[in-house]
Nucleic acid binder design. Structure first.
Length: 459
DNA sequence: ATCGGCTCGCGCAA
DNA sequence: TGCGCGAAGCCGAT
């Protein structure tokens, strides 16, 4: 009997097919890493069971939602470092740029594949691909949640109302799932040797060229681990009080790495728990890393209107409708906002931080999105613009976290109603004066574009 | 500097 | 059926 390394609750079979003879294909979709990856470990385990071997393949869509060159360049950088790691472990690696579903179906037909293993994503487009693949291949398609510590489908079977309803469910299951990972083993021989022409593949992608100069960060697992070490050494101590001060680089800056799966949240959590800092700081960070992040997957999985304002609670939609005709003191177009041309220097600085660094400080993200609601003619329009800007310019754009962040800011998602105001109704309001009382607005505003403190390793 | 009110509804206790 | 309390606040009173 083989040792069962993976909790079977992490695995879901998406069709009714039986395994045949051949290799195991790991369709790496969301989590671009070899180590600390339950989907890769499951592929390895399946291969052992069949006394066979496993391969890894990425099927890159030529376009993806609102992603542009900045996210694709970062992703390709990560995949190139992954290629080297896979070589070390003698795991064949294939990369295709095509419609993912069609490309996988084709690949499975042409090769002797015993089963396909993939990772988990709550996004509609990815679920559609998987459904098509599941129907058109004649071998099993296994889905393994490699992204969440407590698997999204296990922790809750419904859309959760707020963090407070998900939190106890996560904490109850953490001892079962927050465990160290087994090792990936080297395969005996690299059975398929082929060169990947990265430049050619990148050219096959049809994403738009970035309109703004953006810092270039080093992608991949090694860079992510460096960033994590930097955060633990310099900013974790005091995190609970300093994280909401955007003049201070007190955030982990791990979100681009977490988004592309260059680093596993589970590994981050285990490392944070070991750090020698006050318990309160760890607690606050882990709350954000685990509860709030996994709440985003919960929302997107159980609410298929996650990318529209219509997805939020009725009370929030009602209150926004009631205030639809309220006078807007300032009205800006998407283009004015994109170019950071508003009367509010604080808002402009946040927008420039986004376009020039590919990240915006977490606290500013809330203020930024709420002001878009205040300065556009309709809440639906505000939602669309905020999502467009986030998904186009944030390195972690097109992620459940982004959808939920915008829905929280503009649609009161996972939040409670607050004091009535024009335009906002009972959606929580945030003000310039509030920022002024919390941090030094001038220091934040006066930072020149490109000089925001971002300790992520530069390319 | 600190406090209370604002406002809705889930989940649990009774 | 009642009650406590919640993902990040604001504002005015004290």
């Amino acid at each position: 009997m083989l040792k069962q390394a993976i909790d079977n609750n992490r695995v879901k079979i998406l069709n009714n097919c039986k395994e045949s003879n051949g290799t195991i294909l790991y369709w790496m979709q969301r989590d671009h890493r070899l180590h600390n990856n339950w989907a890769a470990l499951y592929a390895q385990e399946k291969a052992k069971e069949l006394d066979s071997e496993w391969h890894t393949a990425c099927f890159i869509s030529p376009t993806f939602l609102s992603a542009t060159s900045r996210q694709y360049d970062f992703m390709f950088e990560g995949l190139q470092s992954l290629e080297k790691e896979l070589q070390k472990y003698k795991i064949p690696f294939f990369v295709f740029v095509n419609n993912p579903a069609d490309a996988i179906i084709d690949h499975v037909k042409r090769n002797k594949v015993a089963a396909v293993v993939t990772d988990f994503s709550p996004l509609k487009i990815v679920r559609d691909w998987k459904e098509k693949v599941a129907q058109h291949i004649d071998v099993p398609l296994y889905e393994v949640d490699a992204h969440n510590i407590v698997p999204c489908l296990v922790v809750s079977q419904k859309q959760e109302y707020a963090a407070r309803t998900l939190r106890p469910k996560i904490h109850k299951l953490l001892p079962k799932f927050l465990v160290p990972y087994p090792e990936i083993e080297k395969q005996k021989t690299l059975s398929v040797v082929h060169d990947i022409d990265w430049q050619k593949l990148r050219k096959q992608c049809k994403v738009k060229q970035d309109k703004f100069e953006c810092k270039k960060y080093i992608a991949g697992e090694e860079a992510a681990l460096k960033q994590l070490d930097y955060f633990i050494a310099h900013a974790l101590n005091g995190y609970s009080t300093q994280r909401n001060d955007p003049t201070f680089d007190g955030q982990s800056n791990l979100s681009p790495y977490l988004h592309f799966g260059h680093i596993s949240a589970q590994r981050v959590a285990l490392k944070i728990m070991d750090a020698k800092v006050p318990a309160k700081d760890k607690e606050v960070f882990l709350e954000e890393l685990i509860v709030r992040k996994e709440l985003s997957d919960n929302y997107c999985f159980y609410n298929n209107k996650y990318d529209q304002l219509e997805g939020v609670a009725q009370w929030a939609q009602d209150t926004l409708k009631l205030h639809a005709k309220d006078k807007r003191e300032y009205l800006y177009s998407q283009e004015q906002l994109e170019k950071a041309k508003t009367h509010d220097l604080l808002w402009n600085a946040a927008q420039k931080e986004l376009t020039s660094t590919g990240k915006m400080h977490g606290y500013m993200r809330m203020y930024w999105a709420k002001k878009i609601l205040e300065w556009t003619e309709a809440p639906i329009k505000a939602f669309q613009i905020a999502l467009y800007l986030n998904d186009t310019y944030s390195l972690d754009g097109n992620d459940p976290n982004g959808y939920v962040g915008v829905a929280w800011s503009i649609g009161g998602l996972h939040d409670r109603p607050w004091f009535k105001r024009p335009i906002f109704g009972t959606i929580r309001y945030m003000s310039f004066n509030g920022c002024k009382s919390k941090f030094d607005v001038d220091t934040y505003v006066q930072r020149k574009v490109g000089l925001f403190d971002r300790q992520m390793p530069l390319l």
